[in-house]
Write a protein that binds this DNA or RNA. Structure first.
Length: 854
RNA sequence: GCGAAAGUGGCGGAAUUGGUAGACGCACUGGACUUAGGAUCCAGCGCCGCAAGGCGUGCGAGUUCGAGUCUCGCCUUUCGCACCA
């Protein structure tokens, strides 16, 4: 056996052996339980980043573990290949997005392979290929038929200089990122998917997902935002004649008697699209944090119960997309209304009693938003929240000016993008027939791959060979739609295509074998949008009879981000220059805290910016390739899995990598030393002296813990820590007797089994030394020997008044009286109970005894 | 602003069901080996204290025989907010 661990060699060998055996090619096999291990597919941005390495290593550990446990495992991989960065690359360097994307895929695939992932590459897909996106188009047409897809107008960010729609990401402090021009809101026609039709099911089925983290389910629940309220009508008469009813939605109908004005969104039909409100972005965060602004419309509406005339204001805090796009304002009991009323001097009328019992303060200092009893509300005085809502809703209904209503925060999904690098929307514009769905025979509507965007508009709009077509209805010359689909469409069903990657239809019956995915792994940042869209899309496919599955992901693991230190220098003009961590020398104080740093190149100080997510712009990324080249894939995988539990953020540490490397070297040397003395059969029974009995107990206790940590808890860091402890214990054995060597042999064999999911290459190599000719890729997960775990005596902790005062060793089955007697006999315990009266003795079996005395 | 999480030694983290706080690793200190050490091995390592012991899980209260863990209030950080993926 080689005395030194050389990862380059053994990793190439192991990967070649897996490939030759086609070990990870998955085939449907109804005789075995299946395990579909799915990781979020990467966007081919150029090269792998640490987040990818972490994501795919977690998936690989679970895939390999379940394979050893006897499951029929399928772990696929693909490319989320459409999107904005390819267009940005084209703008920056003139390369066609297609070319850039395919080059990146080729490079990143090589990188993924060097990590030694147990992936079935036969199922690989890229969403920018016509054979994939044709089914986006096909399903879109089916949705149009069902009325799930429809057209209406929506708001976008408009850069007036380049005459282009901008993504929210491209708007920086209200200005276009390349032009610096003030961005305007603009209303344009778009296609929507009616995800709100599925709101009730998307909400209800969260309860059927025990394998999802509670916080993700809660975030989805809040996002869907089912709320029970009342739709209230405020009649009005326009000065020039006409009349109508202004409808609002409120969850606080009990405060209707306190309404002092009505506010509508800037895009509400009652308001003109007011110039002032055109400015600023379209994101909810921006709207919620901007200064409350508004203006009176000059109109008034009639309070449906009191008949009072209330002014109508346009307010920038009212969202057109939610409820009715208009609200009744009750400043006394809503914070936003309160702030607005203060600013514009509108009246504030308290109609709910404050919890303290205070009643009619003229000028409250803040809105009282709690539920309470109605006051100053005429016939409703004294009613609680529910009674008041019921009574008011009934009175409104009698007048035809209201009813109880359920409203959702969730909005329909706008999928139109005014971009080139995406799935063409299969719609044909005909002068005579209008917007006509493209016929199925035309699919796929192929995206030309040789166009190069320049940042102004969509190059498809100038591409005659793409645009020209005939109207399927009247046969006259027509033009194709140039909008493409949101890339969330691509990622909403790729996991279904993996199940039948070569199907002639969108999917085939193999989806019913593999789905749902038994484990889905990806970034927490996708907790809402991607996961919600994927759930919706799956349900639509189910309702079209394409699959039987309702919920695509049985278990969800949301991994944390990978962070690193940030260093920067502020320029004279306020610009910030970032420095990579390896470009600076860090200064620490006596406690090890970072106090400052200097740039190695010029010796001048740089500022320390704390810890943040690895990103290109902050130059704090670490290239995984350099890590793999220097230490090998196993060290990279081990460090990633050991440094933090998967849900936590992970701080990058060069020293931590060294630690992982050292452990693998120690393990190699330990097996080498053992093997050089000759391999022996693993311990197979017979009586053991106390020391070896304890070692064997540790071996099987470790196996039990690691099985639970990987399989149930998914805390790979604690599994590794336990194996490290066991390895240290095995290394301390200084006994060459046949019995001792047999126990160590058993221990080492179990160690390489337990570590195979995490560091498969080195384990494959070590196992071949421990059992010449054997391969771990064919091995099964070992069984815990329950007999080895049994202990005759156990240690108990003794506390006096909750403080640790001693330890006692008692027989495993000692009774309460015996334990108490032993505890009271302990000299240190006696010292602390001396002179006190014992009030109570708490015995926790197997753990501790607490003597309460005073 | 709204929604969701997190906060434990010098650092990453462990403590799984309310029951020994600090496993494992890193950093650091001392020693061994060595021509050499940025290799390897051994030992120590929360804070205060000579010790006995006391204190200690972001801050402040509370429940309990017992709280890192449960409850309430606050502070800080991170993620998401619908056109980044």
């Amino acid at each position: 056996m080689q005395p030194h661990y050389s990862p380059r060699e053994i990793e190439a060998q192991a990967q070649a052996a897996w490939e030759a055996a086609e070990a990870f090619t998955a085939k449907e096999d109804p005789s075995r339980p299946k395990y579909y291990c799915l990781s979020m597919f990467p966007y081919p941005s150029g090269k792998l980043h640490m987040g990818h390495v972490r994501n795919y290593t977690i998936g690989d550990v679970l895939a390999r573990f379940h394979r050893m446990r006897g499951y029929n495992v399928m772990q696929p991989m693909g490319w989320d290949a459409f999107g904005l960065p390819a267009e940005n690359a084209a703008i920056a360097s003139g390369v066609a997005p297609a070319r850039w994307t395919y080059d990146n895929i080729a490079y990143m695939k090589k990188q993924l392979k060097s990590l030694g992932l147990a992936i079935d590459w036969k199922r690989e897909l890229a969403t920018c290929r016509p054979e994939y996106y044709r089914w986006n188009q096909w399903l879109f047409l089916r949705m149009l038929e069902k009325g799930i897809a429809y057209q209406k107008t929506g708001l976008v960010n408009w850069d007036p200089v380049v005459q282009t729609v901008l993504a929210n990401e491209q708007v920086i402090e209200g200005r276009g990122w390349r032009t610096g021009a003030l961005v305007e809101k603009r209303e344009i026609p778009m296609y929507y998917l009616a995800i709100t039709r599925y709101a009730e099911e998307l909400l209800a089925e969260l309860d059927n997902l025990p394998g999802w983290p509670e916080q993700v389910k809660l975030m989805q629940k809040n996002w869907i935002g089912k709320s029970h309220g009342v739709r209230v009508g405020f009649p009005y008469t326009l000065p020039e004649g006409g009349s109508g009813i202004l409808w609002v939605f409120t969850t606080r109908a009990d405060t209707l008697m306190g309404a002092t004005y009505v506010a509508v969104a800037a895009e509400h039909p009652l308001a003109a699209f007011i110039e002032e409100c055109k400015k600023g972005g379209v994101t909810e965060a921006e709207i919620a944090t901007q200064e409350k602004k508004g203006m009176p419309t000059g109109l008034t509406v009639t309070h449906p119960l009191t008949g009072e005339a209330l002014p109508v204001w346009v307010a920038n805090y009212v969202l057109m997309g939610y409820g009715e796009g208009a609200v009744m304002a009750v400043p006394a009991h809503d914070e936003r209304d309160f702030e607005f009323a203060k600013k514009y001097g509108l009246p504030i009328r308290t109609v709910i009693a404050a919890p303290g019992g205070g009643t009619e303060r003229e000028a409250p200092a803040a809105a009282m938003t709690e539920h309470g009893v109605c006051i100053n509300s005429g016939k409703y005085d004294g009613l609680g929240f529910e009674a008041a809502v019921d009574a008011i809703a009934a009175d409104l209904a009698a007048k035809g000016l209201g009813e109880k209503k359920v409203t959702w925060r969730l909005r329909d999904w706008a999928i139109s993008r005014q971009r080139y690098w995406g799935t063409p929307i299969p719609i044909i514009h005909c002068e005579a027939c209008g917007e006509v769905p493209g016929p199925d025979e035309d699919l796929p509507v192929v995206l030309p791959e040789d166009l190069i965007p320049d940042g102004s508009g969509n190059p498809l709009a100038k591409c005659e060979r793409f645009l020209r077509c005939t109207c399927p209805r009247c046969g006259r010359a027509a033009r194709r739609e140039t909008d493409t689909m949101d890339t969330f469409v691509d990622s909403s069903w790729y996991f279904l295509r993996y199940c039948s990657p070569d199907a002639a239809s969108m999917v085939d019956e193999r989806v019913d074998y593999w789905m749902p995915a038994d484990q889905y792994i990806g970034g927490i940042e996708h907790a809402i949008l991607h996961l919600l869209y994927a759930r919706f899309w799956t349900k639509v496919m189910r309702d079209l009879g394409l699959a039987t599955v309702s919920e695509p992901f049985a278990n969800l693991l949301t991994q944390g981000m990978v962070l690193n230190h940030i260093f920067f220098r502020k320029g004279e003009k306020g610009g910030i220059t970032y420095f990579a961590p390896d470009e600076v020398e860090v200064h620490r104080d006596a406690k090890g805290l970072i106090t400052g740093a200097v740039c190695k190149a010029d010796g001048q100080p740089v500022e320390y910016g704390g810890i943040g997510t690895m990103s290109k712009s902050k130059k704090n990324g670490v290239d995984p390739q350099a890590l793999i080249d220097q230490y090998g894939a196993d060290t990279a995988r081990l460090f990633m899995m050991f440094a933090a539990p998967p849900e936590n953020t992970l701080e990058w540490s060069d020293a931590g990598v060294e630690g992982a490397w050292r452990f693998l070297n120690r393990l190699w040397k330990l097996v080498h030393a053992h093997v050089e003395k000759g391999v022996v059969p693993a311990y197979g029974g017979g009586s053991l002296p106390d020391g070896l009995k304890a070692l064997r107990r540790q071996i099987h206790a470790t196996l039990q813990k690691v099985t639970d940590d990987i399989g149930r808890r998914k805390t790979f860091n604690t599994a590794i820590a336990a194996v490290m402890e066991l390895t240290n214990a095995l290394g301390r054995v200084n006994d060459d007797s046949p019995l001792a060597r047999a126990v160590v042999q058993e221990g080492l064999e179990l160690v390489v089994h337990m570590l195979w999911p995490i560091v498969p290459h080195i384990c494959e190599a070590l196992y071949a030394e421990l059992r010449p000719g054997a391969r771990l890729m064919d091995a099964t997960w070992p069984e815990v020997d329950q007999d080895a775990l049994v202990e005759d005596e156990i240690d108990l902790v003794v506390q006096v008044n909750g403080k640790l005062r001693g330890q006692i060793r008692v027989p495993r089955d000692a009774d309460r009286a015996a334990i108490e007697a032993l505890a009271r006999a302990n000299p240190n315990v006696q010292k602390f109970i001396d002179g006190l009266t014992i009030r109570k003795v708490v015995v926790v079996p197997g753990r501790l005894i607490n003597i309460v005395a005073n």
